[in-house]
Design a protein around this nucleic acid. Structure first.
Lengths: 198, 198
DNA sequence: GTCTTTCTTGAGTGATCGCTCAAGTATATT
DNA sequence: AATATACTTGAGCGATCACTCAAGAAAGAC
């Protein structure tokens, strides 16, 4: 029941907590909140109920950790993209990246999936997803602002509006990519073309 | 157990089947598949379990009926819009309409919500939603084709591509509209502006 | 080796899930 | 009124849900 309380540890946990959170994130990402049972988690993480609850407290708490990991990984990836290719280059590369990365367990955005599933229930996790979506939008906004400052795009439209529109299109693209028999690459390329002509 | 089998009926059902399906559709639309329990349905439709199963067979079957009603109502609405305002007018009016209609129980598209929730489980209802999304896309495609034939928009891009992009943006718009604190009207207006300059 | 602290185990909790069915009730036909 | 047929009722089914906890196993401290 107590994980890592005292400094001198008689017995260390036999797992890598961070890896477990990543595995849980992948499961939740693909199957959603209600679609992921504790049996699923126990099987994927190879943990018995007791260990699971000692380590994470509850399914809800683990989902929250998974959401935060999802968001912070995404944020870091975009930041890296911006470091290497500039603000506009990052925004242009993102659409194709999110729908073609092979290691991701799903194409659709985990935040939007969570929001759609749980918002109607007033579930705390929906609010968390909502907050993280706002953070994402703010990051987009900052990049558009930099792109304008560096005169890479026109200043005709407010960065805030550009960011909102971009995020909306991106969410739509990622749903389209989740569908079978839809060539989302074409949509992504059009989206990027739209960015180029701003 | 037998509903409407013989012509001469000793006792007619006391409910309006179509209205029940609409009520169920609204519940499923907002709360999703797993998020809607039979207790919820029994309360909303004012039916005891026995009547429910006599009338609809199963929760899954009712959800299927609800999906079909959702899709056919949407299809008819768009057709009416086209009759009154032409193909381009219909496509231009749709975005603002779907995010601002007060009678709809949710902003996001029920088909996309169903797809996102159930696709990973290989659930039959996800396949149904997928089929209906394809039908919707086909309807968009036909309207874009008519708009080109009537020389309302350029023929530079294939109607199929225009339809796919439009549907993708619309799905994104509707998710954005579902969020709190997001002014989706601005996104919708931009989307419509994009259509005007095709 | 002994002790102490912590992690692991898994049978089992009450609650809720979708669903069944035997009994009761209502109505058109005769 | 009697009968036949079909709808309504609601207690309760087995299965699964997220979760608990007492007992056992492992490892650092001494």
């Amino acid at each position: 029941m107590i994980i890592q309380e005292s400094d001198s540890m008689p017995r260390k946990p036999s797992y890598d907590r961070n890896k477990l959170i990543e595995q849980a994130r992948d499961l939740f990402w693909t199957r959603g909140w209600a679609g992921t049972s504790l049996k699923d988690l126990e099987a994927a993480l190879k943990m018995k109920p007791g260990s699971f609850y000692a380590a994470f407290g509850s399914k809800e708490n683990l989902f929250d950790l998974a959401l935060q990991k999802y968001a912070s990984d995404g944020r870091m990836r975009l930041q890296l993209l911006s470091d290497h290719h500039g603000p506009l280059g990052a925004l242009q590369r993102l659409p194709l990246l999110v729908i073609s990365s092979d290691d991701a367990p799903a194409k659709a955005c985990m935040l939007s999936k969570t929001l759609l599933e749980l918002q109607a229930h007033g579930h705390p996790l929906a609010e968390r997803a909502s907050d993280l979506l706002l953070e994402m939008e703010a990051q987009f906004c900052a990049l558009f602002e930099q792109a304008q400052t560096q005169q890479l795009i026109s200043t005709a439209r407010k960065p805030q509006d550009l960011a909102r529109r971009f995020q909306s299109d991106l969410l739509g693209l990622r749903i389209s990519a989740e569908r079978n028999g839809i060539n989302a690459t074409l949509i992504a390329e059009e989206l990027v073309r739209g960015l180029a002509s701003l």
